[in-house]
């Protein structure tokens, strides 16, 4: 890797203590992401992949390790020190029904980050940016005054994506961002995320249990199992010539649809 990575995670550990036992959710994970690159982090439930994302956004405190974002260690920062960096490190959540505050209109939800990070100078400016971002994710300006329950799951996930994109982040962590959606809607949202990523040049850590989705969106892939990364590589290498036994088992487990004759 010649250029300096945007994010360089070194030996990240997140341990939880519950009733005297220590759970090593993340146990020494290292990877890096270049500017504009999409790294897929794939693994089965409980492997610690979501905790990695939560540690990188300080939703969970790391036990040990470093995460250098443009050279600064974000894990050792206090909440206050990390605040200005939040603008650049954003997160898309899994459940579109739970990730929006039911009491706030779409405009209220989207204006919050704008005012916190002092991006909008005035109400009018904020309104214009919100409308622009909604358009970007495929929603009309009439969405602004409405509440989350008035939208379908797919639309809500678009609003969640808008909340992230409105800050023009450098790194987006997408935690199972399309897993809760119906297949036909999932495809739309995947296309949207991919397009936004390409147009904006943001880097992305795409966390998912779904290998097909990860292959579709990622440049490189890291496979995680039991708190550790077992294999990292270009997606073609991971999917065409997996080295690790666990990766192979994972790939073999996926039900396949027999080759079809393309008639269209």
């Amino acid at each position: 890797m010649s250029a300096q990575p945007l994010l360089d995670v070194r030996d990240l550990k997140v341990h939880f203590r519950t009733r005297g036992r220590t759970v090593r959710a993340v146990d020494g994970v290292s990877f890096d992401i270049a500017p504009g690159e999409v790294l897929g982090l794939v693994g089965e439930s409980g492997c610690g992949k979501s905790t990695v994302g939560r540690a990188l956004t300080q939703l969970e405190r790391a036990t040990a390790g470093q995460a250098l974002f443009e050279g600064q260690d974000i894990l050792s920062m206090s909440r206050r020190q990390f605040l200005p960096l939040r603008r650049h490190i954003q997160m898309i959540f899994q459940d579109p029904y739970a990730s929006l505050n039911p009491r706030l209109t779409v405009a209220q939800t989207l204006s919050e980050p704008l005012f916190i990070h002092k991006i909008a100078r005035s109400r009018k400016d904020a309104q214009a940016r919100i409308a622009e971002t909604l358009d970007l994710v495929g929603l009309g300006p009439e969405a602004m005054t409405r509440y989350p329950h008035e939208f379908s799951g797919g639309q809500r996930q678009r609003i969640g994506i808008a909340r992230v994109m409105i800050l023009e982040p450098k790194l987006v962590i997408a935690d199972e961002a399309v897993s809760a959606l119906d297949v036909s809607i999932q495809a739309q949202v995947l296309n949207l995320i991919k397009k936004l990523q390409r147009d904006s040049g943001m880097a992305m850590l795409f966390i998912s249990h779904d290998l097909g989705v990860v292959r579709h969106i990622s440049d490189r892939v890291a496979v995680m199992s039991a708190g550790k990364i077992v294999e990292t590589g270009d997606k073609s290498a991971i999917f065409e010539a997996p080295q690790d036994a666990y990766t192979r088992r994972l790939l073999d487990s996926i039900p396949r649809i027999m080759p079809l004759k393309e008639t269209s």
Partner: peptide
């Protein structure tokens, strides 16, 4: 523990907010 609270934290919202 709600996800929308996590989302607000990620947006940079303070304790009072």
């Amino acid at each position: 523990g709600e996800v929308f609270v996590d989302a607000a934290v990620c947006s940079g919202a303070g304790h009072a907010s």
